[in-house]
Design a protein around this nucleic acid. Structure first.
Lengths: 200, 200
DNA sequence: CAATTTATCGAACGGTGTTTGATTATTGCC
DNA sequence: GGCAATAATCAAACACCGTTCGATAAATTG
């Protein structure tokens, strides 16, 4: 019975994204499929394809919510404090959000485009933004360094933070005994950032 | 026509693992499926399940070849040189191998267990070994530090190296302009390792 | 040569992403 | 208000996927 008009297309889109989050939170990242999401919101698969390009689009839009959440938190952290402090906050924001919703972040980490299609630009820009925020702070921290140096350090540092959060969420960091990811982040910040700030 | 006995089960296993590598190298990580691998080696799907537990097992055994290759290279690098040099070699071994066969390493990075089953122990041990090799060198580098300190630094450093190689292989590191992963690795080693070695 | 084992196949089951055509509710127009 | 155009919705189909299973035939054993 078409067009019951109980929901606008935008509402359906929001419902579907909520459903992705619910399904992932309760049954893990592998529980996502077009049919399951459709069933969860009371529509058929075909309807989903009216609102999303494909499953990649659906998942990326859901993941973008998390990335945006992190970006907003990191933008907020930028206010006022000294750059080294701000960057530490950003790194811990990442780990803290990942720990709050591990399954949903696993979906972010684990997702890959079907068939090897490229990641769309609108999503790429969102993840690049996270690098850019770090870069800004590094430029504040060392205004006399060449911009390329800050760019390199931002990519190095944020890739490292990413690696630590990634392994933390999949429980690959605590090997024999206890190595908490928080300690690893602090170690990284102390030594890498400390050394970078001091040099030159 | 059963039991043609042209290949022993071990030979079939090796053929299948070769086929995984070939398919991944030529058509990307998404090209792996039980049917395609079976077709490639001239057997049927059912036969694969006589040799492997499931597709996860097949992929993990293929991935273990790469992990072992890296482990062997890193063990070889450990001979003789000063620890800081050895660790630098290890990091660059990782990136260099990843660059030599990007698609195959993408399969390592991208693979996740179906249904959320745990990664089997035999594979876990292989990846843990990579951390352990770094830890040994850090202990050589700073024999007076508590072992826990070396363990933490090893996990921090190798997670970071992993993050950089991961993003490098998926082209997410060169954003605007040119940030080569090699430079990022060197930056990480210089500042993190340099600072860690000096402190205390 | 007969009996047992076992390598191998082919088909089946339920799930997946995606496309398409039919159906029907809503909208715009006279 | 009624009719035509539009747009939402569904159901079914296609090709692929991982996995299981029974039948079959070759090799091995006695």
């Amino acid at each position: 019975m078409p067009r019951r008009s109980e929901h606008s297309l935008d509402e359906i889109r929001a419902l579907a994204l909520d459903a992705v989050e619910d399904l992932v939170a309760s049954h893990g990242p592998t529980a996502i499929s077009a049919r399951k999401v459709a069933a969860q919101i009371g529509y058929t698969v075909g309807m989903l394809y009216h609102v999303f390009d494909n499953v990649d689009d659906l998942v990326l839009q859901a993941n973008a919510r998390l990335v945006d959440q992190l970006a907003r938190a990191n933008e907020a952290a930028a206010a006022g404090n000294r750059p080294q402090r701000v960057i530490a906050r950003m790194a811990h924001n990442y780990l803290s959000l990942a720990r709050q919703a591990p399954a949903r972040w696993q979906l972010v980490f684990v997702h890959t485009m079907r068939d090897g299609r490229p990641v769309p630009d609108w999503y790429r820009q969102r993840t690049d933004r996270l690098f850019a925020l770090v870069e800004e702070q590094l430029q504040r921290l060392a205004p006399r360094r060449r911009p390329a140096a800050a760019a390199l350090a931002a990519r190095t540092l944020w890739s490292s933070v990413h690696g630590i959060c990634l392994l933390a969420v999949s429980d690959k960091l605590d090997i024999g005994g206890s190595t908490s990811a928080e300690k690893a982040l602090d170690s990284l910040l102390t030594h890498y950032l400390g050394s970078w700030a001091q040099s030159r």
